[in-house]
Design a protein around this nucleic acid. Structure first.
Length: 304
DNA sequence: TCGCAGGTAGAAC
DNA sequence: GTTCTACCTGCG
């Protein structure tokens, strides 16, 4: 079944968006299990020409399945219109060609994005994706070879490290204690993740964030430990589809200062203000494209 | 070996 | 309010 909306699926999957790790890939087909209204649906997605070809198995209608894919890969977003927008901004035209077909890769479950984004801070893409995959293996909901990320309530009692696991589980051999967050390689972020699970299990209904204004949502997720301004914007953009978010990190700071501030060193906070003011509802997409361009073009290596 | 990786928390100025 | 610093850990 084809969805006629242009996309570079591999680029989108591997662009490091903190909604989730890339799906499992075999011969260009990306596969995963997704929860649709309580039904577990396994998707196989492949690029066919410039469009998306997919099939699925699970107890949902074609409409429900395609709606979910449309959301996850943001297929209703008009890329041609966006490229015209970029074409009208001299600073952005070059990166436009570099990122052709790149789309948002939105989280099927915003809670996974919360934990992934916390995990991504001061971390490499390779390491945080590996950590999230292991969390899914340890505590996720398994369907065939795939796993759905655990719910916040499923991570409430998770052990932080092997020492705590040994103390509380009664397993005296500490080398046998692998059922804990630190064993997933999350380091000092482990207590942040467990606290975040408590907050979204008991204190904040995660679905309400979809109905908040951007500013209210931003302040809300900032309350979660391990969430600063950059991680908050990743959560809002990739987890909750707030397209006016402009997650600003070292890469964005470098490329924005190069393109707009004559290479001058400006604070990340000012870069965020600038991006939101300058790009409005396109801020999320511009950030996504700038990030990819800054990392992959080689431009930054020349400047550094 | 040592610094870096899509920053944040806590403290100092 | 802004600036400084320690920080898990795997990889080059």
């Amino acid at each position: 079944m084809i969805i006629e909306s242009p996309i570079d699926l591999e680029l989108t999957q591997l662009s490091g968006q903190t909604s989730q790790p890339p799906w499992r890939e075999v011969d260009g087909t990306f596969s995963n299990v997704v929860d649709i209204g309580g039904n577990k649906v396994i998707f196989n997605v492949k690029q066919y020409g410039e469009f998306l070809d997919f099939n699925y198995s699970g107890d949902v209608s074609y409409r429900q399945a395609s709606d979910k894919l449309n959301y996850i890969f943001d297929l209703d977003f008009d890329l041609d219109k966006f490229y015209k927008y970029l074409g009208n901004h001299a600073e952005l035209t070059e990166m436009s060609k570099f990122c052709n077909g790149l789309r948002l890769f939105l989280a099927p479950d915003p809670f996974e994005c919360v934990i992934s984004s916390i995990c991504s801070a001061n971390n490499s893409i390779k390491r945080w994706t590996k950590s999230i995959s292991q969390i899914k293996r340890n505590w996720g909901d398994h369907h065939g070879d795939y796993s759905i990320f655990p719910k916040s309530s499923d991570l409430l009692g998770v052990y932080l490290d092997e020492e705590e696991e040994s103390d509380l589980s009664g397993v005296s051999d500490i080398s046998m204690c692998t059922n804990n967050l630190k064993d997933c390689g999350v380091g000092y972020r482990a207590p942040y993740m467990r606290r975040a699970s408590e907050i979204f299990a008991d204190e904040i209904s995660i679905g309400e964030i979809f109905n908040m204004s951007y500013e209210e949502a931003f302040e809300t997720v900032l309350e979660v430990p391990g969430v600063g301004p950059k991680v908050a914007d990743c959560i809002l953009l990739y987890g909750f589809n707030f397209r006016e978010a402009f997650p600003s990190d070292v890469w964005i700071k470098r490329i924005v200062s190069h393109l707009y501030f004559d290479g001058k060193d400006i604070s990340v906070a000012r870069v965020r203000d600038f991006g939101m003011e300058e790009f409005g509802d396109n801020a999320g997409y511009v950030q996504l494209y700038l990030f990819h361009y800054a990392r992959k073009s080689g431009l930054m290596n020349k400047l550094k």
